[in-house]
Design a protein around this nucleic acid. Sequence first.
DNA 1: TATGATCTAAGGGTATTCCCTAGTTTTTAA
DNA 2: TTAAAAACTAGGGAATACCCTTAGATCATA
Lengths: 210, 210
Amino acid sequence: MIKVSITDDHYVVLKGIESLLKDEKHINVISIHENAKDTLKAFKVNEPDILFLDINLPDINGIELTKTITKTFPKVRIIALTNHEDVSFVKRILDNGAFGYLLKNAHKAELLEAISTVTKGEKFLQESIKKKILNQSLGRTENTAFQPKLTRRETEILKAISEELTTQEISEKLFISPKTVEAHRMNIMSKLGAKNSVGIIKIAIQKQLL
Amino acid sequence: MIKVSITDDHYVVLKGIESLLKDEKHINVISIHENAKDTLKAFKVNEPDILFLDINLPDINGIELTKTITKTFPKVRIIALTNHEDVSFVKRILDNGAFGYLLKNAHKAELLEAISTVTKGEKFLQESIKKKILNQSLGRTENTAFQPKLTRRETEILKAISEELTTQEISEKLFISPKTVEAHRMNIMSKLGAKNSVGIIKIAIQKQLL
DNA sequence: TATGATCTAAGGGTATTCCCTAGTTTTTAA
DNA sequence: TTAAAAACTAGGGAATACCCTTAGATCATA
């Protein structure tokens, strides 16, 4: 008997997964939660084998919660549940301890497959995601979405730019020379492949760097 | 007996709503669809009284589909289903023929209330949305998200800016003086309440103006 | 203790954005 | 059918961003 929990702030998604799984005799949905706090609280009483976890929760960032659960309840295997098809995002989730990655358009068969694969201790990825990863490492079509690594300072300046601050204002805020701010901005542009600050913001929002 | 259809590209959401409604004796879920095309096709054979419609579909923009359905199948009452809490967005949907607006975190009671309200021919809004509208028209807290109306030319220039084009490039593309482009950009900034082009893009993405 | 990565920041341009003002055309409504 | 409003056009001038190069200081780590 596999014990399954689900955490998602969308009630209909909770009920959807629950209803898809309840016909399965070897699966027992032991709890459903709408936020991170309730999830952690419930786990102290009854810990599942598998958690379907929505990455976009209201209270905590999903990646952080994945880390926390992996540390506190190492036996729980997490299957991330999102709409993000961005490959770099998938990698980040898996790197942080998740065992599987499912899109919300997944059908019943995929749900069950994910559960059985993860139960065996193997990682599970939905077909469409696998294809994307392949396309990316081979063809590099366009979604060449490798995760650009910004440094601490660059991240600070990125945030400041997104707050519509000028170079002058940023320099005053961070106690550095305007020239330094410009240097960082240039590096950010080149790392993100942007032509100007507008491009920086566009890409930063796309890749959730903010 | 109220005939209900559901359209959502997330299978678990479809099953979730279906499972929540199937215990209700006066409600009959006659069909579920994962995209706009299938929905319209199915309606030709069997038309529901109420359609729960996800606004973010892969094939057609949800607002457009709302318009289409309202024209082609005027008896069908649409309840929009999204995560957008933006008030201006709600208004746009309702203006285009929707009868109700539900967030995906809605619980069973709200689903049922939405159905009964809309069946009576009244408009339905989820409580949390109502509150937001109130807060907005009174306090104007921060989410002062009224839909800024951009002109045709402004929209063209907004798109060009988001493509990281410079003023010069935009002027050549649209066969107008660079100075005119700048004037439009200034108007866009003032309409959106942005301090610079970065702000324009940020807000445009937020408000889905692109 | 090097070696690389990061943070710092200068000079010296050019290009672009931002701001104010204002004429012309088009659309809307009395 | 005219005013009035809105949209489109665009100029001058100041401020800011962008783009090179170069380079010292700091910090982690192998």
